[in-house]
Design a protein around this nucleic acid. Structure first.
Lengths: 221, 221
DNA sequence: ATAATAATAGGAGATATCTCATGTTTTTAA
DNA sequence: TTAAAAACATGAGATATCTCCTATTATTAT
């Protein structure tokens, strides 16, 4: 992780119109961080010092269970707040966020401007909408997840994450994401392959029958 | 559902210090509703006209899937906002809320004071904290749900919802809540009974071995 | 370049959970 | 008060998903 200063900093601040989220001058409280792939932006058990606003990159939100299982709760993509829960509620810093590619975050030092932030209707309104969307999306995802077998959810996911009919995500990551075993994910891929819906290639899978895949995905609300 | 007026209205308004959530005079926009058991406060597919704040009673949040399955997403207990998503985001009214006992809700007419609400830092801050808590709780619940078998989750739930070592929730409701079949819920109750942890009685179950139950619950993070 | 680590792959058998079917009991509504 | 609807119960067999095991590639770090 490194701090970005000088003209580079200005570029990110301006390009992503950070100031527009606030009704007071935020620049004294803001830093711009660049995280390398694999860096932790927030670590389980540590109180974050900043409210982060990711503007470039990609990250993953994890939680570790007592039984050692790790759940990949979500993929995080910009623009997104991180650490906002900790800004609002004391003593809640229970998840890890790890980048999966180089990422740029605007970081707002919590201690220095917590009170200002929490009194700024403009910012709070934006945050409310953000939280409410997050809640809606999460709720939809988890409701789906408990009501349908992996085959359907995977079909939907393949359609969403493939480019030019090629799917090439990492199995280890995706099995975490769906909360199923690696083994079972492979089973399900094999199943789709046998059904002639996809075909395994060197580096990934090719979609052979988009309609069938869509039909499987459509069984989900 | 009936509208409560006169001194009764004043009682609820004062007793639950509704005004303290806002920095402007909210009383012109507020009504007090009483819902009978089984009434729908919000219906799937209908845009709610009010932002509700439940102060007494108990309700259930549902969603209906394409395949006909119903998920009981959560039990709602006061104090809680309902319809806040719809206040913040247009075009999102996708869930039903049904009371499971007589309930009292403070209702704020959205159309009339949406703009005032969304400019009130005091209210927005409260709402942010509310949304953030909601998000944390949901996330914890669903993460658990996908990582542990019903036996553990049920053990935890029995401990939480029993009074004087007696558990007496409705199976139909609880199977929805956990997103498992009714059949499987009974299986799991039978399993706990066989293990001597609980014992079936006339109207419910008696906890025989609280320690074992706790041990099962403790396997969950 | 080499060794260590992570990701892929699949077999075999166990377990959790589901669907369907059927009968009884309790609650609700006409 | 009686009929209808909802909740309770349980058997049997199917399916989804898990754990454990064992190899074979890729990646990454020394």
């Amino acid at each position: 992780m490194k701090k970005i200063k000088g003209p580079q900093r200005g570029y990110y601040m301006d390009n992503y119109t950070i100031q527009s989220l606030f009704s007071f001058d935020i620049s004294p409280y803001v830093e711009v961080f660049e995280f390398e792939k694999g860096d932790f932006i927030i670590q389980e058990g540590n109180k974050p010092e900043y409210l982060f606003y990711m503007v470039e990159g990609k990250a993953k939100l994890y939680v570790t269970h007592k039984n050692g299982k790790i759940s990949l709760i979500n993929f995080l993509t910009p623009p997104i707040f991180m650490g906002e829960i900790e800004l609002l509620n004391e003593e809640r810093y229970s998840k890890s966020i790890q980048t999966s590619s180089k990422s740029i975050c605007i970081a707002i030092a919590i201690e220095q401007c917590k009170e200002k932030l929490l009194a700024d209707a403009h910012f709070l309104r934006y945050l409310c909408v953000f939280l409410s969307n997050k809640s809606t999306v999460h709720s939809a995802k988890y409701t789906k997840h408990q009501a349908y077998p992996l085959e359907n959810k995977l079909a939907e996911f393949i359609l969403l994450s493939s480019h030019q009919n090629i799917y090439k995500e990492k199995h280890t990551e995706i099995s975490d994401y769906f909360g199923v075993s690696y083994r079972h994910l492979l089973h399900t891929f094999a199943q789709l392959s046998e059904a002639g819906v996809i075909e395994k290639m060197n580096m990934g899978y090719k979609i052979l029958d988009k309609q069938k895949l869509q039909a499987l995905a459509d069984e989900i609300k």
